[in-house]
Computed example of a mutant assay.
Amino acid sequence: MEWTGARYADTPTVEVETWIDAPPATVWALVSDIELMPDMSEELRSVAWLDGAAGPAVGTRFVGRSEHEAFGKWETTSHVIEYEPESVFAWAVQDPSEPSAVWRFRLRPKDGGTALSQWMQLGPGRSGLSVAIDRMPDKEQKIVFVRLREFERGIAATLAQIKRRAEA
C-alpha cells in the first residue's frame, strides 16, 4: 500500500494489491461487473450503465451514486478509458480529459492464481474534496491525506471481498 503527493494538484494516488487463489478469468468476472461493486464498497450505493451499454468497453459510461458521512450524497458519471479482458479495467470520473478521479483494476497471473491491484488517483479535475479544500486551504495536505487513507481502507476492503468471492 502506498500513496504519493500531498496536494490535490499533485494528483496523489493510492494503490493496494492482493493475491487471489483463483484464475484471472474468475477474478475478471467480478471486477468487470460494476453492478456488484456497491455490495463491496462502503461509499458506493448503486451503479448503472448508460447509453444502452450492457457492460464495459472503452468509451462506455456508467453512473454511480455514492454517500459519505462528511460529503453527503452525490452522483458521478464515469467513462471507461482502459479495457483489456483479464488484464485491466479503468475509468475516469466526470470529464475524461480532466477527471475528478481515475480508478483502475489490474490483474496478472501469479503463482497459480491472480495478483489483483486497485489504484486510484485524485484529480486533476475538481471534486467534492475540492470544496473542502476551498473552505480550508491551510488544511489541504491533511484533507488529502485523510481522504487517501479512507480510499486505501476502502480499496483493501473491496479487494478482500473480491478475494473471498473468487476463492469461494
Rank of each mutant, 00 (worst) to 15 (best):
W3I: 14
W3P: 03
A6L: 09
Y8K: 12
A9G: 14
T13H: 10
I20D: 02
D21P: 00
D21R: 06
P24E: 12
V27C: 01
A29E: 15
D33G: 02
D33M: 02
M37S: 12
P38V: 00
D39K: 05
M40K: 10
M40W: 15
E42I: 01
G52R: 07
G52Q: 09
A54Q: 12
G55A: 09
F62K: 02
E69Y: 02
E69D: 09
T77W: 00
H79Q: 08
H79L: 00
S87N: 10
A90S: 15
W91R: 08
A92P: 00
P96N: 11
P96L: 03
S97N: 13
S97V: 04
S100W: 06
S100H: 07
V102I: 14
W103P: 00
W103A: 06
R104C: 09
F105N: 12
R106L: 04
R108S: 13
K110Q: 15
L116C: 06
M120V: 11
P124A: 12
G125Q: 08
R126W: 01
S127T: 12
R135C: 01
K139D: 14
K139N: 13
V144D: 14
R147I: 11
F151W: 10
E152S: 14
E152T: 13
R153Q: 11
G154L: 04
A156F: 02
A156T: 10
A157V: 02
T158C: 06
I162P: 01
R165Y: 03
